[in-house]
């Protein structure tokens, strides 16, 4: 579930963000409680609490006292904007470096992408 190398709270926060980004968790929807999360994934509750606090600080979720935690309105759009900015540096950059090392021309990559994702099909 979690890799053993980076802080667990960050991995939890990233998973919740992925769920929001992919629409698995919609705006206004309740997220699992800290205790449910801790018990389900067999982790210390303080670690889970730290992850949810980070998500609150970043405006991805909000707390309603005594009720629970919910996905914030507009969280998905904000996460998309943020991830789009990182997409070219973190995803495309390393891919181009690998292609370069393998001697694959950029034109081949473009042709490949167009075969698998024709224009008009992208949302």
């Amino acid at each position: 579930m979690f890799d053993d190398r980076s802080p667990i709270y960050r991995q939890i926060a990233d998973q919740v963000k992925d769920d929001v980004l992919r629409g698995v968790l919609g705006a206004g929807q309740q997220v699992m409680s800290t205790n449910q999360y801790a018990a389900h994934y067999r982790i210390n509750p303080a670690t889970a609490a730290k992850a949810f606090q980070q998500l609150v600080d970043e405006g991805v979720i909000y707390k309603r006292r005594g009720v629970g935690m919910f996905v914030a309105d507009g969280a998905r759009d904000r996460l998309r904007t943020e991830r789009r900015e990182r997409f070219f540096t973190e995803v495309v950059g390393p891919m181009l470096a690998e292609a370069h090392a393998l001697g694959i021309p950029v034109a081949d990559i473009v042709a490949h992408l167009q075969r698998h994702d024709p224009p008009g099909d992208s949302r």
């Binding site: 053993d4 190398r5 980076s6 802080p7 667990i8 709270y9 210390n44 670690t47 730290k50």
Partner: peptide, 12 residues
């Protein structure tokens, strides 16, 4: 006692 630290901090 060699070290005392939050587990999650130690991971980083």
């Amino acid at each position: 006692l060699l070290l005392r630290e939050d587990l999650d901090d130690l991971r980083g």
